[in-house]
Design a protein around this nucleic acid. Structure first.
Lengths: 182, 182
DNA sequence: TAACAACCGGACGTTATCGTCCGGTTGCCC
DNA sequence: GGGCAACCGGACGATAACGTCCGGTTGTTA
């Protein structure tokens, strides 16, 4: 059996370090965080970064796969409500605006991002019928409306200093919750 | 009486051309439109641009003075309601996201921008009491909440292709209007 | 142990925008 | 008509980030 050669630092190790550093950079500086800085923080050269992740999107997908998976896991759990899903998304957004910003307001169209957006939309769709039945949401609100709404909040937060994010989120969701209720 | 000397093209003429070009650039490319392009479109050198307007903020203030004045004029007219003000702001935002983006979500703190923000907030405050009295708005909604909300929509729009702006604005304001109502 | 395959990291060229600097021009004033 | 004050425009250097390229290193394989 042919095992691949390895350089001074294992490729997998570098890859993991890059994802960790990128997660932090995205949280600090938003979706457009400089990739140069990510490489530096990971203790890795530019070359290794671009070898593992040819562009920003592929790096971001690796970083945020967990976030989508968490949403899907929550939706799969019986008894999960729309409020539960919105709460999780809100928490994710306060911690890091990058994920929802990428999903909801991509700088430019990209099929890989569309795919993730669809997964998020499906999560919302899965809890919408129950929310309509119990009157938690007006019947004309669509999953797309909600994707836009969470994106709108995320983009707002990404333009605010981290210190104001929690409070601003509270204020805006107070408006939006009333807005979606039946 | 001492009249200032004038160069080959009148200073006032250049200034006006710059403001016109900047208004268009801001509308097309958002608040962060490249100033180089503004100078080119105005048929003026970089030097003249920066002489008349030392930085982006001073140019933007000149461009958007009209917008603030329009809001203040509307608020001064008797019988103006909160809905009227929000409608005007929405129209302004669909036409150009730059004004409200600058006011509500400035890239970095600037006293001159704070001043404009305060003027906008005062306009909203002037129509809030009547809106509360007639039940058009919940009593705990502040002018600051509204400044943030219009800013949130503006930032969302500025990240969307112009073709989707009208429809998206409609969808988000449908949510937000319900959200502010009593 | 000799040679090679895979991988490493950072130097480098590219692009975009900013803001400054300065040689040149115009028209007023004496 | 001579000279100066104000103004013009674009060349220029600085900065920031991107993405590529390549000389060097490591560990495996024969």
């Amino acid at each position: 059996m042919r095992r691949p050669n390895r350089g001074p630092r294992a490729a997998a190790e570098n890859r993991a370090a890059l994802i960790t550093a990128a997660r932090e950079a995205f949280a600090t500086a938003g979706y457009n965080a400089p990739l140069t800085e990510v490489a530096r923080a990971a203790g890795v050269g530019q070359g290794s970064l671009y070898r593992h992740f040819p562009d920003r999107v592929s790096l971001a997908l690796a970083v945020f796969e967990d976030s989508v998976a968490d949403l899907e896991a929550l939706a799969a759990r019986p008894g999960t409500t729309l409020d539960d899903v919105l709460n999780l998304i809100t928490e994710q957004t306060v911690a890091s605006t990058a994920f929802i910003t990428m999903v909801s307001v991509p700088p430019r169209p990209d099929p890989r991002i569309v795919e993730v957006r669809d997964r998020v939309a499906r999560v919302l769709e899965s809890v919408l019928p129950e929310a309509r039945r119990t009157g938690r949401v007006r019947p004309d609100i669509t999953a797309d409306d909600l994707v836009l709404a969470v994106g709108m909040v995320a983009v707002l937060l990404s333009n605010l200093p981290a210190s104001e994010r929690t409070e601003t989120t509270g204020r805006m969701w107070r408006l939006l919750r009333h807005g979606i209720e039946a």
